[in-house]
Design a protein around this nucleic acid. Structure first.
Length: 919
RNA sequence: GCCCGGAUGGCGGAAUUGGUAGACGCGCUGGACUCAAAAUCCAGUGUCCCUUAAAGACGUGCGGGUUCGAUUCCCGCUCUGGGCACCA
């Protein structure tokens, strides 16, 4: 019998599906283990060989954990809402549902060929109404809650209303927007609309005005993580800053908990660091400056981390979008300020970042330094951001490089505050040195001066300590069609939730997927779409909405009563191992943690963090091939000879190149213009050049997993993807090495079959065979637990070299079990050929006996002053003193000694012997 | 600019965390089998010196240091991948 992988793989994939081999059910008698992949967005291009890398790793781990006796939950589904399907719909008029369906079908087909051990009974799409019902449900819960800063927890809005009725706005310490304070009596006298507007400032899902990333080309707002270098992540269109009213999630309320929670997670340091930077905690103080515009005076609050530098404030700066701009622009400066604001508004986000030009305008007003009483001008400049702190700063040019650049440009004074700091050329930003020119702070070190300044400010009622976070509330509405509709309708202008029992609010049919002529979102086209006559919210939710709690839904995917039942939640708890790319570091992985913490506050889930351990698989890059055409001809010169000619480098389809050798006939057939191509060969072959690039259609370097499965089989694909290198590292796909792992599997097969002769015997294994086997068991166990899959594959190959010709059942059975997580099809086939009726999935991981692997003798390298001279073969059991004696007595020792004497001998048992010489 | 990470043969990558650097695989060279090819098997394969071998020297991006001993630890660079980027 031959190793017919095509037949074997088809057979067992069908068998696993029919027998529901990987069905997971809550089972209190076994420990649970939840392995999750970041579910894919099913794009039209299908999977390339890079996509399954993480899936293969998680599948190996799942199968390994099953062998180790765990009840493994390993589900898969699709993140099905999103822009590409909608853009395609706009162009073709096809319903996004339809293209999504087709893409999902193709993904499923490709995934099935690789032999994953998913429990497909738990599959869902985020665009299924049965699923997004629970996305809407969670949104309504957030709408119905506020965040209590005192107990650091989300609470029902009714509690807040009661508190307002009891003690007015001063009764609570909440994460909220701005509004005028009110008493209990005032609260009771408010109209419904007034109350609704106030409560909206407190809700965790709220509607509020803020500066947002507006992308005109996509016709929608975008979250910060969806903007890269000033362009939209999807499509690369320019993005502008704009003030708009949008639905938002009060993620910022959870900033502290999101930060602290990181310490308890088993994630890579780099990923945690990314989240820490994104959350951006900074400790400082808020201070009040009196500002004067003519005869009007106001209190303006600013945030600073350097309260110690207040004696060096020589001007103040407002963000162009700040509400203070209006109040502080004097009549004389009005025209100039308006011109500046107009110019800023026209700039794209990209231009604002890239230019880094120092621009600004004087408002005409002045501020009074609360410590010195000095009068300093108030400027408006785009380098101050509206969204951070209070949108206004005190400028200390001597000790802040941005303020310094501004002061130089507009000729504002610079007052040095630190002894010895030379600020004639640049600012001195470091937090070190002794204070000068700073009144009561003089003589203190900066590190002492900061708290001393804040203490003073607090004592004199000028300000107070404050922690600020960079993380913003998440903009939660998109002016698009293909997303979850909001379960919100408008009654008398008040945003009102749809009752739970009327969920889901499903997407209506519309004639076109574009915004309306008047610029309303596509959902405004829907006819008769309302709640009992009241209009629905016309925006839809963003992409991250559906992916924020999907790991919870997998625990109980068919439950119509709850997102997840308390029983299922208590059993599966949270994800033990999550594998996916780093690109979600500041998006999905933050939102999910926020979402989970919110549900935790309300008692719907029992774990505070969703993903216990997280691994980021690296990218698989393409390996492109090139041919070199001599300029002006149709003659192609082989890579080794190209330097002798003037050539153009042309990407060539890697499918007609094998081991960098071009298939000349296939090349001529590839494109009509190459039909009569001529070649200059080296050694009779055309050698192509190569380079590592991103895998993409335009570079003709895309490797399709289906093709690999056709020519080598899924088991080879799985093994090879792991063998390529460390999981977390990016690496190029190089088809060259794949023959090696394929050869390995065929060798495994040949331990069972010599053509048609069945080789397996019941003989007892030898000591050497047991040694090879147990070395492998030990290695595999250790490597898999450390996610070092590439070295495990090497260990298989080493074991096979050691076990040449060993066809003993007692060795082959455990070997198949060990192999089954990596190459499940061949393992399952041979397992059944050995007479087993049940799947190898239910076998137990072989027990490791290290005693079989112990060596009888050790080759000790003998080094003289660290330089190795010879090896001595000594019994492993020999004591260090005996080893020393044996080495001293060895003839070679005497030979190398010369006129030197032995100072001392260092013996590392089992490792080496070092002889230290002296004259 | 700031914060992480990486650099090892012709190539992908190992190295038990301070103990024979280059495991394993690819590629290449030679051989066996074959009419021949494929497949398979065996041997060799870091560099230099050399007819060959023995022996030796050099060798983990560069320059120093600690140590009997450094790919591994410390100091100073170079190159490179990634993340953040006016966050006061």
């Amino acid at each position: 019998m031959d190793y017919n992988f095509l037949e074997i793989e088809k057979k067992w994939q069908a068998w696993w599906a029919a027998n529901k081999t990987f069905k997971a059910e809550a089972d209190g008698s076994k420990p649970k283990y939840y392995v999750l992949d970041m579910f894919p967005y099913p794009s039209g291009a299908g999977l390339h060989v890079g996509h399954p890398l993480g899936y293969i790793a998680s599948d190996i781990f799942s199968r390994y954990k099953r062998l180790k006796g765990f009840n493994v939950l390993h589900p898969m589904g699709y993140d099905a809402f999103g822009l590409p399907a909608e853009q395609y719909a706009i162009q073709t008029g096809q319903h996004p549902e339809k293209t999504t369906h087709q893409n999902v079908a193709r993904y499923r087909e490709q995934l099935d060929r690789i032999g994953f051990s998913y429990d497909w009974d738990r599959e869902f799409r985020t665009s299924d109404p049965d699923y997004y019902k629970w996305t809407q449900w969670a949104f309504l819960k957030m709408f119905g809650c506020w965040y209590d800063n005192d107990i650091q927890k989300a609470r029902p809005i009714e509690v807040l209303e009661a508190a307002f009725a009891e003690g007015g706005s001063a009764a609570v310490n909440a994460a909220c927007g701005e509004h005028a304070p009110f008493t209990a009596e005032e609260w009771k006298s408010f109209t419904d609309k007034e109350k609704a507007d106030i409560l909206m400032q407190y809700r965790i899902a709220y509607q509020g005005e803020s500066t947002v990333n507006w992308c005109p080309a996509l016709g929608t707002v975008l979250a910060n993580d969806e903007v890269k270098d000033g362009y939209s992540e999807r499509g690369g269109h320019p993005v502008f800053q704009k003030k708009m009213v949008q639905w938002q999630l009060r993620v910022s309320a959870y900033a502290g908990r999101l930060l602290d929670g990181l310490d308890r997670l088993d994630w890579t340091d780099s990923l945690k660091e990314m989240q820490r930077n994104w959350i951006g905690r900074s400790q400082g103080a808020e201070m009040v400056f009196k500002v004067v515009n003519g005869d009007r005076q106001y209190d303006m609050t600013i945030f600073t981390t350097r309260a110690d530098t207040v004696f060096g404030v020589t001007f103040m700066v407002l963000a162009p979008e700040s509400e203070w701009v209006e109040k502080l622009t004097t009549a004389a400066q009005r025209a100039e300020v308006d011109a500046y604001l107009a110019a800023v508004k026209k700039k794209t986000e990209r231009e604002r970042i890239a230019g880094k030009a120092v621009t600004g305008v004087f408002s005409g007003s002045y501020a009074i330094n609360p410590l010195t009483g000095d009068k300093v001008p108030v400027w408006i400049a785009e380098y101050v951001l509206a969204g951070y702190g209070t949108g206004a700063i005190m400028a200390v040019p001597a000790h802040d490089s941005r303020d310094y650049a501004f002061a130089r440009k507009f000729n504002l004074p610079v007052i040095p505050l630190i002894e010895g700091a030379d600020v004639s050329e640049e600012s001195f930003d470091a937090k070190e040195g002794r204070m000068i020119n700073s009144g009561f702070l003089n003589g203190l070190d900066v590190k002492e001066a900061i708290p001393a300044a804040i203490d003073y400010v607090e004592a004199h009622g000028i300000g107070h300590r404050k922690v600020n976070y960079r993380i913003r509330d998440a903009i939660f509405s998109r002016q698009r069609y293909w997303g979850e509709p909001f379960p919100i309708y408008y009654k008398d202008g008040i945003a009102t939730p749809v009752p739970f029992d009327r969920l889901p609010v499903t997407l209506p049919e519309i004639d076109e997927y574009k915004p309306t002529e008047s610029g309303e979102p596509p959902l405004a086209r829907a006819k008769d779409w309302n709640y009992e006559g009241y209009p629905f919210e016309k925006s839809t939710m963003p992409g991250f909405a559906g992916s924020s709690a999907y790991y919870l839904r997998y625990m109980d995917p068919h439950n119509d009563e709850a997102l997840v039942s308390p029983e299922a939640d208590k059993y599966w708890r949270n994800v033990d191992l999550y594998i996916g790319g780093t690109e979600h570091a500041t998006g999905h992985l933050i939102y999910s943690r926020f979402w989970n913490k919110f549900l935790y506050d309300l008692g719907y889930v029992c774990e505070d963090e969703p993903f216990r351990k997280l691994i980021n698989q690296g990218m698989i890059q393409g390996r492109s091939n090139f041919v070199y055409r001599i300029v002006g001809t149709n003659t192609f010169v082989s890579a080794g000879l190209k330097d002798g000619y003037e050539t153009t480098e042309i990407h060539v389809d890697i499918n007609i190149v094998r081991n960098d050798r071009l298939d000349l006939e296939a090349f001529k057939a590839w494109r009509p213009e190459y039909a009569d191509a001529e070649f200059i060969l080296e050694n009779g072959e055309y050698i192509c050049g190569w380079a590592v690039e991103k895998m993409s259609k335009s570079m003709y370097n895309v490797v399709n997993p289906d093709r690999v499965c056709d020519t080598y089989g899924a088991d080879t694909l799985r093994l090879y993807e792991m063998f390529l290198g460390p999981l977390e590292q990016s690496k190029p796909w190089d088809t060259k090495g794949i023959d090696g792992v394929n050869r390995f599997l065929r060798k495994v097969w040949r331990l069972f079959w010599d053509r048609d002769k069945w080789l397996v015997t019941d003989e007892a294994p030898t000591a050497d065979e047991l040694k090879a086997l147990h070395k492998l068991i030990g290695k595999e166990q250790e490597d898999i637990e450390n996610f070092s899959f590439n070295t495990t594959v090497s260990a298989f190959m080493i074991a096979l070299n050691d076990l040449q010709g060993c066809s003993k059942r007692a060795v082959l059975e455990p070997l198949l079990i060990l192999l089954s997580p990596f190459a499940p099809h061949i393992a399952e086939e041979l397992w059944h050929q050995l007479g087993h009726e049940d799947s190898i999935t239910y076998a137990s991981f072989p027990e490791y006996h290290p005693e079989y692997t112990v060596e009888n003798t050790v080759k000790y390298p003998v080094a003289f002053n660290g330089k190795t001279r010879f090896l001595v073969d000594l019994p492993a059991s020999m004591a260090p003193a005996e080893i020393e004696g044996a080495v001293r007595a060895h003839e070679n020792t005497q030979k190398y000694l010369g006129d030197m004497t032995i100072a001392k001998v260092i013996v590392v048992p089992g490792r080496m012997v070092n002889v230290v010489l002296k004259k």
